[in-house]
Design a protein around this nucleic acid. Structure first.
Lengths: 123, 123
DNA sequence: GACAGTGCTTCGGAATTCGAAGCACGCATC
DNA sequence: GATGCGTGCTTCGAATTCCGAAGCACTGTC
């Protein structure tokens, strides 16, 4: 454990350790983006957060929460719930353009549906 | 195969299929963010792209490239190199704030260095 | 033909994720 | 004080994903 990507130290699969690569590595882990997003809406307890994340595995959630805490993006509040730190909220806000893009993405795919094989005509 | 997250269809572990969740799932796969980033700088051939991504596994690169093509973010050009589509470049641009955030992240951690697991319990 | 570089595939092993179960705890109700 | 419920968190076997080295077919150069 404790392989949390951090700026300034080597990133998984890399030796550069540039902050961007560290961020890309941190965010490129399953559920991390989603957790930040859900936590950005409101502080949540462990089990409720798990439910919000499509009932993701509790073991992985625990690991992600630890990573997020080590990376100073999340913290435990006095009432026991998890919340984003100032840095965490800042990160979540940086995700806003991605959110907007996803809408354009959906619209673009709707306009020009993929003609690939596996996507048969479903009405 | 073909588990590429797409807006409008169920996302891995989910049944909502909202475009945001699809995007979060797509980006939350190892190397995906990095590939988009590298391809955003310039079109690259398979092996060169692999090198740019810290010599990531070719099998995974192949899979990511397929997913990116299915998601209409990347395409193969006439000269055989891979490049981002308009949608892909749009996505990469939406990542810019994340880049900027990663710098602030590095700066914040430098100011208040992590207490590295078992720490001196300061205040 | 020998050599080098390309995109891409295969495959055994390592790492990550999953999912269900369980533990210790607090808090009501009985 | 026993029962039931909900919590945060842990454990662990299995499924999935990722890794990494090797190899194939093809292209171009000498």
């Amino acid at each position: 454990m404790s392989t949390t990507p951090m700026p300034g130290r080597p990133v998984r699969g890399s030796t550069t350790g540039r902050s961007l690569m560290a961020a890309l590595d941190l965010f490129g882990r399953r559920w991390t983006l989603r957790i930040i997003w859900e936590l950005g809406n409101e502080p949540l307890g462990f089990r409720l957060l798990q439910r919000r994340c499509d009932d993701m595995s509790s073991s992985v959630l625990r690991q992600r929460l630890t990573e997020l805490q080590e990376a100073r993006l999340a913290e435990v509040r006095s009432d026991g719930t998890y919340a984003l730190t100032t840095l965490g909220h800042d990160a979540r806000k940086s995700l806003d353009p991605v959110i907007e893009w996803s809408r354009r993405w959906a619209a673009a795919l709707a306009d020009a549906p993929p003609t690939t094989a596996e996507n048969a005509d479903d009405g």
